[in-house]
């Protein structure tokens, strides 16, 4: 089992529904977010391009945050999901510094927080909250080890990229182009 997510940049309209759905689902305190939207404009008027991405923790297969965590609070859970064990987190921020994607933040309660791929939902057979709410169905969540999963099929038929591949983190959030 290898959980992954693909975000279709052709569909995403940057509405932020994924952000607010995550916030309510996971009680993310106001002022923080586990996922966020990036818009990149290219060209000059009127020859323009716009890429919109819903970004979050990439649940890297080779995760620097896990490597640098002194207490093993940051760890790989089932399906390769990268999690933080709140009680073991000492708030030292080593992981925050080592993550090339700025995916982590200090929760007001003192521990480090970030996207969990909504593991509590995934375990019940539901999609992560962001995926299940997206009005344009821009996100696909699933198991990369299953060649028949929607995500495997999308990755096989569409052009895609991941973010900062040169960092060698082996991200598992992909962007369909």
């Amino acid at each position: 089992m290898r959980y992954a997510m693909a975000v279709d940049t052709q569909k995403c309209v940057g509405c932020n529904d994924c952000v607010v759905a995550c916030q309510t689902e996971n009680d993310v305190p106001i002022g923080h977010c586990r996922d966020w939207i990036v818009e990149v404009t290219t060209g000059t008027y009127p020859d323009l391009g716009l890429e919109i991405r819903s970004e979050r923790c990439n649940h890297c297969a080779n995760a620097p945050c896990v490597r640098t965590c002194p207490t093993e609070a940051s760890h790989y859970a089932a399906g390769g999901i990268v999690l933080v064990e709140e009680d073991e987190c000492i708030g030292c921020k080593a992981c925050i510094t080592s993550c090339p994607y700025d995916a982590r933040f200090i929760h007001p309660e003192g521990y480090v927080d970030k996207c969990t791929f909504c593991i509590h939902r995934v375990e019940k057979g539901q999609n992560p909250a962001c995926v299940s709410v997206c009005p344009t169905h821009a996100m696909i969540f699933g198991n990369l080890d299953d060649p028949n999963s929607d995500i495997s099929k999308a990755m096989a038929t569409r052009k895609w990229k991941s973010l900062i591949p040169e960092a060698g983190t082996e991200p598992k959030v992909f962007y369909l182009l």
């Binding site: 375990e123 057979g125 999963s149």
Partner: peptide, 19 residues
């Protein structure tokens, strides 16, 4: 995350596309 989880992971009865 700790409890019910392991079972579901071992037997993936669900299909995300059919949510």
């Amino acid at each position: 995350g700790v409890g019910a989880g392991s079972l579901a992971f071992a037997t993936p009865l669900f299909d995300f596309s059919k949510e």
